[in-house]
């Protein structure tokens, strides 16, 4: 069975990535979509003592919200269309996690949407999609913000 990783973030680009993923899955036939939501987080960020004390609680909330607002609705809608779906939510760097999941699940490719953000950080270090292209070990499809998907 072929597996395709689709990066979701609750935004329109994520939806477009999922739409593309579904198209591919339909063409492939025996294909599972792995929907991934990454909560950006670094073990080297700095926090106040108060934030540290509440960290475990916040983490649980973040995971719940990711499932409730993004992954579950997407899973239901996608399964209703007859696709096989798995959902994953993780904390960390989106690029590292997508790559790691692609390797561990033996995914054939990664599909992500391109977001419009062009902040200082993206300019300096490249956005998620740019870095993913540079480091992924499987083919990567980037879905532009506009234009037909299917």
């Amino acid at each position: 069975m072929t597996r395709i990783l689709v990066g979701l973030d609750g935004s329109a680009p994520g939806e477009r990535a999922l739409a593309h993923g579904k198209m591919l899955a339909r063409l492939i036939g025996d294909c599972e979509l792995i929907l991934v939501y990454v909560i950006e987080w670094s073990p080297y960020e700095f926090h106040t003592p108060q934030e540290l004390a509440e960290r475990h609680m916040r983490r649980e909330q973040e995971l719940d919200q990711a499932h409730a607002h993004v992954l579950e609705p997407a899973r239901k809608a996608t399964e209703a269309e007859g696709f096989k779906v798995e959902t994953v939510v993780r904390h960390g760097d989106p690029v590292a996690i997508l790559e790691e999941l692609a390797v561990s699940r033996g995914a054939a490719q990664i599909v992500v949407g391109r977001t419009g953000h062009r902040g200082m950080r993206e300019r300096l270090f490249g956005g998620v999609s740019g870095r993913l292209i540079a480091s992924a070990s499987v083919p990567v499809t980037i879905i532009p913000e506009t234009g037909a998907v299917q």
Partner: peptide
């Protein structure tokens, strides 16, 4: 450095964070 941190605990308070916050005090 996180060598002994369980990756499934990502998003929890790391040793580095606890140390850095205590140091800033």
């Amino acid at each position: 450095r996180g060598d002994y941190s369980d990756p499934n605990d990502a998003g929890e308070v790391s040793h580095f964070q606890a140390l850095a916050t205590a140091l800033s005090g």
